[in-house]
Structures are given as structure tokens and as C-alpha cells.
Design a protein around this nucleic acid. Sequence first.
DNA 1: AATGAATGAGGTTTCATTCAT
DNA 2: GATGAATGAAACCTCATTCAT
Lengths: 205, 205, 205, 205
Amino acid sequence: MDEATTQKKDIILNAAIKVFAEKGYYSSRTLDISNEAGVAYGSLYHYFRSKDDILMSIFQERWNLLIAKVRQVREQGSGPEEQLGMVIDFIFRSYRQNPDLLKVMIMDVPRLDKFYNPENWKLYNLFFRGLMEIFHEGQEQGVFAADVSPILATIIMHGAVDATIRQYVYNPEFNKEEFPVEEARGQIMMVLRRGFSKKVEGEKS
Amino acid sequence: MDEATTQKKDIILNAAIKVFAEKGYYSSRTLDISNEAGVAYGSLYHYFRSKDDILMSIFQERWNLLIAKVRQVREQGSGPEEQLGMVIDFIFRSYRQNPDLLKVMIMDVPRLDKFYNPENWKLYNLFFRGLMEIFHEGQEQGVFAADVSPILATIIMHGAVDATIRQYVYNPEFNKEEFPVEEARGQIMMVLRRGFSKKVEGEKS
Amino acid sequence: MDEATTQKKDIILNAAIKVFAEKGYYSSRTLDISNEAGVAYGSLYHYFRSKDDILMSIFQERWNLLIAKVRQVREQGSGPEEQLGMVIDFIFRSYRQNPDLLKVMIMDVPRLDKFYNPENWKLYNLFFRGLMEIFHEGQEQGVFAADVSPILATIIMHGAVDATIRQYVYNPEFNKEEFPVEEARGQIMMVLRRGFSKKVEGEKS
Amino acid sequence: MDEATTQKKDIILNAAIKVFAEKGYYSSRTLDISNEAGVAYGSLYHYFRSKDDILMSIFQERWNLLIAKVRQVREQGSGPEEQLGMVIDFIFRSYRQNPDLLKVMIMDVPRLDKFYNPENWKLYNLFFRGLMEIFHEGQEQGVFAADVSPILATIIMHGAVDATIRQYVYNPEFNKEEFPVEEARGQIMMVLRRGFSKKVEGEKS
DNA sequence: AATGAATGAGGTTTCATTCAT
DNA sequence: GATGAATGAAACCTCATTCAT
């Protein structure tokens, strides 16, 4: 794949992200995408097999970035708490840089039938596995509570971040001024840090 | 609306829930719904204005139940921790009773354009407001940390539960045997209780 | 057919006239008619075989009135000019009394496939035959020009009246104040009287 | 709009005219039109927005021709009588060349809800205005009677022609052999000439 | 590679009519 | 006679995808 091709694919992908974010995958027409991208709509099919394929490409490209980030964070070697914080930071920064992309990732990707194939699940779970490993290390180092399952911890973390971004993206009654992204990010970190930390003195078991 | 009408609407709604859960809203045809419900094609349109209207009715009926639950929990008057626990329990029990319903609520409802109207947001936020009030009371009673925003706390809680159920619903690699629903519910409760509790001794701010 | 039945049929027919006039036959639903008539929509089918049948009944009832009028005018025995004038008067008066009815007669009846059956044509042409006979008598008495075909004369007369009423009914730019119905009627009469009268002195043949 | 597009639109339009003339607008299916045109189903919607749009295009194209004809006749500058004769001739000739077209114009166009919009009325009345001006000139030149309103004169003329063509098109009992089109046209001209001419000697006012 | 006209399967919705109550 | 829930055929239109240029 030469560079020109890669560039054109990116133009189309970015146009698709914008269009999907605005109307939703199923309400978006390929014509909308080609218009937004400024290419003839037949051209989409030079670069992608189908409309589905475009959405899957968005997922894969983005998700690989996320996985790379997790890997980079892990190799860089600070403490488990800091590592989780860096991943969460990365996600929130991604949202600020390109809210449309996260909107698509959260809302459209998981609702596409074709998304649910083994290959994607493998990719999907790769990210969680990275987080789980960080958490597990934290447990071994005594930073995180031993009675919390790494799987659940990961899901909770991801769910908290995901739900927060959803509020930003969709809820018109959500007061974005009162809650700047940084504030939200800080609170989530705080709650999770506490939630994941070792048994609190005097806790009812 | 007489009883017979209510019954018929429920039959259709339940059929729709099953069909939507299986194929997703956009991939479900109205014919599938009428077949599943065992009624004639056109009958759907006696009871609902459109396919959209069916999905919106599912949301509204279900969400009103959730709001009613929150209200009931609040009136019944145990401590804030117990109250939040009861709501979470209710959601997990709902999932066990009717996983399809939750699947539709989580995956299909939020992706429908028409969902995003003021009336629905009002309903939607009514639930969060109830949770927020519980949390706020907990703060006043010194049970929950004062430096956590009730809004964020609510979102985190909801996100955690939602994400967990998503795993049950979709992730084929998620080991449901290892994690029975009760286990997941217990762990979430534990993490949140810790995460929401007062500042831990010696916490880095 | 007892009296109660006849009355109910008339109620339905009048409702249908109103609805058809407003929305056109094909855009009118049987439900609209039953609502307008204040009866259950199943009831329409007690009194009429079908929606088509309702429109045909409107035509037949009305057209028989027209034919009766022509017969009455002929029996009453004034001169041919006066007789034609009376028929035209009758039509204009009908329009003033019930514009909706004429609207339906002119616009909806002739566009229904089922209208074109031998029985209706017979009825339809009965009216024209009456007019033709009047005209023919006028020719024999030397009142109307002998070189005008009674058939054409009749068609022209009918077309002129019909087109004028159409303007009243539909054309929003047609100035109804400037042209009260009586004025229009008078002018048509004048033009036709002249047009049908014997060859003008010095006419180019 | 390039030439190929124009050609394809014309093919579809002509097919639609044929189908509409045969079955009436509402009884014609879009599939019938595409079959008749020999194009794919969906192609209709490349060239026209909707079925309605096809009918409106037929009206507009045809009516612009009529208006152009009136303009041409006026510029060409013969006497008012001749000018009106030429317009009537044009209409009758149109009927002979393409009876289906006139059928659609007379029967289907005026019964479509969407026909009644300001834009169409403007177009519609442009034709009448042209005729009225001819008539008015005739009055000033002393050829036509001063006591006849140009508006009514125009309507009568149009109604007479329209009603005659209707007979040809629809009435199975109308004897077309006895009345060839030329004969009808001649008689109408004669009646109108007389009807529009100056007060006849000895006329009752 | 790029274009966009052409395709046609498939979906939602309408609505006249039936018929059990 | 009166009702209106139930029926399901049929219609319009959309839109992803193909393919000749």
C-alpha cells in the first residue's frame, strides 16, 4: 500500500468518522461519506470493501493505537497506579482531540453485527488484558486490593470512563462548564484509586 | 387503554425485545417482530406508530420501572449504602430475568436518533437524579466522601454496571462460569463502596 | 330500503363529499369519512360495498338530479334559449349551495377507473341528450344556428360552465370578488347565446 | 444537465405519460413506469425525486410549450381572431400527436394535491394571461365584443376545448368517425367567433 | 485510479376490507 | 345493526454496491 493510497484511505476514514458521529452508522449513507471526503462515491469501493469495512477499519486503527499505548505505558515502567492513570489520561485526551472518533467507537462499533467476529474480540480483549496485567502487578505489589478481580476492575474502569464520555457526548442536560474534562478525569481517578486500594480499616466485609 | 389493548401491546413489545436483542434494531425487520409476536403484520401499526415508536416504548416502560424502583428504595429508608446496593441489585436481577431487555436498553436505545429528544432526556435524568440524591445524603451523613461529585459518582456507578452487563451479553471470551452474576455484583459493590467512602488514611491527594 | 337506512346513507354520502372535496378521492381514507360522518368505520360497509361505491353513489344521485332538472325544464315548455339558461342556472345554483359536491363531480368522479362502465356512460349521456334535444329544437325553430352540431354545442356549453366552476374552486389567483358567480353566469349565457345564434351578417364563412 | 440526462428523463417522462394515460395516476405503479421505459426501477429516482415529481414535470414541460406557443403566436402578429385560432389549433394538433399527453394533463395533473402550489399557479395563469391579452387587443380593435370579460372569454374558450378533448378521450359513445377532430375544431372556432363578436343586431340585452 | 449512472432487493408503512363480538 | 381490532397485499422509496467509461 503506497503512501498516496494510505493518505486517501485516511481522508475517507476521517470523513466517515465525522458522518457516523453525526447521524449514526445506519443513518449515514455512503454518499454522505464520499461528499464529506470530497471523493466520488465509487471511490470508496477502491479503498474499502464495504460500508461495514469502513467502520471496522475505524475500530481497528483506533484500537491498535490504544493497545500500543498500553504497551508503551507498561514498558515505561512507573507504578501500577500511575500506569492506569496514564491510560485513562490517554482516553480522555483522545476524546478532547477527536470527540467524534470516541462517539463512533462507543456507539456505532459495538452495534454492528459484523463487529462480533473472533478476530475483533481478540483485538478487543488485548486491550483489557493489558489493563488486567497492570492491575495484577499492582495487587502483587500490594498497591491494589487482592480481593478484587482484575477482570472486574478493568471492566469497571473502562465502564466508568466510557459512561462519562457518553455524558459529554450526548446528554444535553449535562453541565459541561461545571465539569471540565480534567475535573471528570480527576474524580474518576480518585474514586478508582480508592476503590481499588486495599481493604479500608473497619470495612464491613 | 383497556386491558386487552395493554396485553396486546405487551406481547408485541416482548417480541420486539427478543428480536432486537438477537439482530440489533436496524437489522430487525418489522415482519420479524410480527412473526415473533404471532400477530398480523399490520397489527403492529394499530398499537404503535412506527418501528421507532416500539423501541421508544421499550425504553420508556423499562426506564419508568427503574425510576419507580429508585423511588421505592428511597422511601423505604435504609442507609445510603444499602440503598445504592438495592438499585444495583435491581439492575442485575433485571438482567438475570430478562437479558434481552437489558441488551436492547444498552445497545439499541442509545443509538436511535429519535431517542434524543427532550422528553426522553428528562426521563433519563430522573433516574440519575434519584441516585444523586441518595449519594448526597450519604455525604451529609458522612458515609460517602465529600470530595466526590454526586454526578460523577452516579455516572461511574452506572457505567460500571452497564459495562459489566455488556460483557455478559456480548463478549464470547468472557468467562461467565468463573464470574456468576452474583460474584460480579458483589465485586462492583465492593469497589464502589470503597471508592465512594471517606478519604483513606494516608492517601496521596 | 327503509327510511332510517336512507338517512344514514345520506349522512355518509355528505361526509364523503366533504372529505373527497378537501383531500381528493385517493388521498381520502375511509376512516376520514366515517369520522366525518360520526359512525364506526365498519358501518360504511353496511351501506356501501366499497369506497368506490360511495363515489359512484355520489355521482349517480347527483346526476339523476341533473337529468330530472333537464326533464322538468323541457316539460315546462318555454323557449329553447330560456331552457338552456335554466339548466345553466341550475348548475351554478348547485355550486353555490354545495361547492364541495361540484368539486367532487368535476375532479374525482371522472378519474375513477370504475366510473367508466356502460351503465354510467348511459346515465352520463342522458344528460347530454336532453341538452341536445333542446338545442335541436332551437335549430328547428330558427333560434339557433343550423350549422352548429348539437353535440358540439352541448359539449361547449358544458365545458364552459365546468371550466368556470373549476376556477372558482381551485384557482387562488382568480378574483372571486370581481367576479361574483352571477356575473360569470351572465357572461357565459351571453357568449353562448351569441355563439349559438344564427349566422352573423357579414361573417366570414 | 447534460444531453444524456435530458434524453433519459424524456424516455421516463414519455413512459409515464403512456402509463398514466392508461391507468390513471393513482392506479399506476412506479414499477409500471420503469418497465415501460425499459430502465431499472431505481433509475426513476435518479432522475426524479418522486412519483409526484414525474407528474409535475410532465405538466411543467408541456405547459411551458403552450406558453411558448402563445408567445410565438402573439409576436407573429396576425389579427386577434387568427391568433386565438392558432392557439386552439395548436392544442388540437397536440391532441392528435399525443392524445395520452392531453389525457394526463386534463385528468391527472389537476387532481394531484401537490399540483396546487404557488409556482404552478403562476405558470398556469401565464397561459391564460397570454390569451386574455389577445382577447383584449381584439376588443380594442373592435373585433371582439366589449361587454365580454377577457377572463371569462379565456375560461370559456379553454373549457370548450378541454371538454371536447375529454369526449374524444373518454366517452365510448362519442362518435369519433362522425366528428373528426378537424370538424370539432372548426365548430368550436365558429361558435367562439360568433360568441365573442360584437353585439348582434336586435339582441335582447 | 476515478467516476457516477445504473441496478434491484428489501424495508417500512398504509389502508381498504373483513368478521367476530 | 353497529363496532373496531385484525388482516396482509401492495406501494413507494432507499441505498449499498457494481461496472462501463
